[in-house]
Design a protein around this nucleic acid. Structure first.
Lengths: 170, 170
DNA sequence: GTCATGGCTTCACATCCACGAAACAGTGGC
DNA sequence: GCCACTGTTTCGTGGATGTGAAGCCATGAC
């Protein structure tokens, strides 16, 4: 996982945002500033000026921690809470059922028909409903680091996302 | 909790021992040495020479982490006093019973029905009473650093609040 | 190569319902 | 009486779900 570098106290807001989504971050402290209290285990700081070696070393350490904190696959509570590591999101009923199906075959393709059946056991609404729910599900689980890949004309597939991309797009 | 200071790589063995028993530690890295990969969240390092301020700051950060790891959940006295660390608040009867339920399943969802049963064993009043009491409970426990999250259409969930917000408001 | 098609994505709405929050009122202890 | 606790009414906000339509893109026809 990539570690975000940010200046303190200049990028205070960005730090808050990254912390909220559980992204690892390294604060670069301006020469005369006091470092803030670290809020979690995915945060660290170095005082400027710092050697590239030290920055890299701390980034690597955080990345290492982050990697050991994330699980290969998430867990779905009966209450519709999807957990991965210490993070969680709640899924509305339809999306929870869809995700349950995808999780049953984690890493493998689930056909649109099978998904529709699990999402709406008593009959699916319009054809587009599934597409929209997959879209919403994608956005909901993205912060946990999981992605739903499309396999054209075959179905969908749930897998662990590339953590690096997430952080960059944030 | 006290943070052990030790020289790296001189006291390599001591570091291993401290890590094994879960004691927080700060490594003082000799000028030209590469820092080791941190083994857990209770470890950190500074490169020598370092200012006393930086050493203190990192020690404090580690100590803070260590402390926050033990105060994960609050304790509810039989007499309705909720304690977390050195802080406490007193809860009125209904709210104490609600919180007791949430505490039994700390970090997991408790349904509105289950909450209503524990709050009013002899039958719940109007449907909105629960909402109002949860609202009041939220405000009461906020100063202790805990939050009650809503999981829409499923129930409520008690967890530790965002440490960042606490620190900022402090 | 160009083009059309089907499959999927995304957005914009609309509806419905759960929950949040304030304001008010009754009750009982001190 | 004053105040804490409790419950109700009422209104507002935002989440959950579904639909229609526009757009994107790979595939296959030509």
């Amino acid at each position: 996982m990539d570690v975000a570098l940010l200046h303190w106290p200049l990028e205070r807001d960005r730090r808050t945002a990254l912390a909220a989504q559980g992204s690892p971050r390294l604060l670069l402290i301006d020469a005369d500033e006091a470092p803030p209290l670290l809020v979690d285990c995915l945060e660290d700081w170095v005082r400027l000026p710092a050697s590239q070696g030290d920055i890299d070393a701390r980034s690597a350490a955080i990345a290492h921690r982050a990697a050991s904190h994330v699980a290969e696959r998430p867990v779905l509570d009966p209450d519709g809470v999807l957990r991965s590591g210490s993070d969680w999101v709640s899924l509305p009923p339809v999306e929870a059922r869809l995700l349950e199906s995808l999780l049953d075959r984690f890493g493998a393709v689930v056909s649109r028909e099978a998904l529709a059946r699990s999402g709406w056991p008593s009959g699916a609404p319009g054809r587009n409903a599934l597409d929209v729910h997959v879209l919403r599900l994608r956005r909901r689980i993205a912060p946990l680091g999981f992605v739903i890949k499309t396999v054209r004309s075959r179905g969908y597939l749930l897998e662990r996302g590339n953590a690096l991309l997430e952080v960059e797009s944030a």
